[in-house]
Amino acid sequence: MKFVQQPMQQEISGPPPHSSDLTSLAIEVIGREGSIALLSGTSVIAARTLTRDSRAASSLAPTIADFAAEYLPGGTLDSLGSIAVASGPGSFTGLRIAVTTAKTLAYALDTPLVAVNSLVAIADVAAQKSNPADRDLSLPAPLSRSILVGLSAYRGQVYRGKFTPGQPPSIDIVSAAQWKTELQLSARATGDVGLTEDKNKFLFAGDQTVFSSAGAAIDPDQWSGEDEVRAIGVGRVAAEMLARGETIDPLKLVPDYLRPSSAEEKVGP
């Protein structure tokens, strides 16, 4: 959990699965880059970040096609059991690309579609990193520590998600001043008052810029940042939602920005 950049392309993969094992394609373009993952239930089969030398609009579809050719029977998406997408909040352009791609595929393939909150997906990835390396990764990661997720919402605002064991998630859009206060209180609560056990430390995840601009001191082992393959979190959360029947009609899915876009604000009601 360090503030470091990974190579341009990151890939996690195992041997190509049998068609009966492959159940879900997960897609996310939460920030400037994005990622995709293939999962069987909550077990990751393969995951890949989109190349950083091109925009998601131009690299998402080819990357999905490459995955189909490499992992799916006949090189097509026909055997997918479901599609999951991070529906927001996040980058206005990125969310539109990801949501449009996911709903188009789900409609064309007549495949169940699951919309996952971006902050929940990022928190899932952070929770995975906080658990022992020998844990069974085919099972959901238990939330054993509080997680604070922050994404840039621009215009002096932050998309904030707070996840505390035993409590409902708190997801909102806050001002930069509110974010700075909450982040600094969280950082102090996990270090300055002597709570040094891992279970008492917050985990922090999201956009590095919204953390560094707030000036909070975060230990490297408490950071889960932008270099993670966030589509894994999308797919794992979606698997649990799918099991509960929480799907959405592709024609009804729209990105969730937690606020109107600049153009919508100019037009008004």
Rank of each mutant, 00 (worst) to 15 (best):
P112V: 05
P89G: 11
G90A: 06
G75L: 05
D134K: 07
A121I: 07
T101K: 10
V120A: 15
A102T: 01
D66H: 09
Y107I: 00
T76R: 08
D66S: 11
I97K: 06
Y71D: 04
L77M: 15
A126M: 06
A86E: 00
P73V: 07
I83C: 08
G74C: 08
D124H: 07
L113A: 03
K129A: 12
S79R: 13
T63W: 02
A68R: 04
T76K: 13
P89F: 00
S79E: 12
Q128M: 14
A61Q: 03
G94L: 14
A108G: 12
D66V: 00
P132W: 09
S87H: 14
A86R: 10
A123W: 03
N131I: 12
T104W: 07
A68I: 05
D110T: 10
P112N: 09
Y107H: 15
T93Y: 14
N131C: 13
V85F: 11
L119W: 03
N117V: 09
N131V: 13
G74R: 05
G94Y: 06
D124W: 03
A108F: 00
T76L: 12
Y107V: 00
S130N: 01
I122Y: 01
Y107T: 08
G90E: 06
A127D: 06
P132T: 09
P62H: 08
R96F: 11
A121E: 04
A126R: 04
L77D: 09
I97H: 10
A115H: 01
Y107A: 15
F92T: 12
L119G: 00
L119M: 13
P62C: 03
V120E: 14
V99C: 10
A106L: 03
G88Y: 08
G90F: 08
I122E: 05
I64H: 00
S130K: 00
G90T: 10
K103C: 00
A84H: 10
V85S: 11
G94I: 11
P62F: 03
L77N: 09
A106C: 06
L72P: 02
L105N: 01
L113K: 06
I64E: 04
D78M: 07
A65D: 14
A65M: 05
K129R: 15
I97D: 12
G75W: 03
G81Q: 10
G90M: 12
L109R: 02
S130P: 01
A121H: 04
S79M: 09
K129Y: 02
G75A: 06
L72K: 02
G88D: 10
S91Y: 03
L72E: 05
A123H: 01
G81W: 07
P112K: 01
G81S: 08
A126G: 05
S91A: 11
N117H: 10
L80S: 01
V125C: 14
P89A: 10
G74H: 04
D134G: 00
Y107E: 13
F67A: 15
P89H: 05
A106R: 02
T101Y: 04
A121L: 13
A127P: 03
D66P: 00
K103Q: 05
A102D: 01
I83F: 11
D78Q: 10
G74K: 07
S79D: 13
D110H: 07
D110C: 06
G74D: 09
Q128N: 12
L77A: 14
A126K: 04
S82H: 07
S82R: 14
A126W: 02
T93L: 07
V125G: 00
A61W: 02
L95R: 04
L109M: 03
A121N: 05
T93A: 14
S130V: 02
N117E: 11
A61E: 12
A86P: 13
S130F: 01
